[in-house]
Amino acid sequence: MVPLSYYLILSAILFACGVTGFLIKRNIITIFMSIELMLNGVNLSFVAFAVRWHNLSGQVFVFFVMVVAAAEAAVGLAIIIAVFRTRETLNIDQVNLLKL
């Protein structure tokens, strides 16, 4: 028997790691991975609350979050490729102009 709050704490820690990575990393791909880490943390709390309320809707929402994450990854990585093609860098400190 594990208290459900432990699962929520784990999801909070993973979310915090994602936010920290978003703030301190300078590589645009790693920043994108931090966003995926945050989404994973949120998914864990969805499933934990689904257990708490004995309701399957939580799992359906996790499914939708995953679909949106997949779509976001596809479009985001395409944007990263387009950025790299025009600037030839992945460092976000050097990507500071909307238009070249």
């Binding site: 028997m1 594990v2 459900l4 934990a48």
Partner: peptide, 9 residues
């Protein structure tokens, strides 16, 4: 939140 048994869902 209570506790979760194994395979509680």
């Amino acid at each position: 939140a209570g506790v979760a048994a194994i395979g509680a869902l």
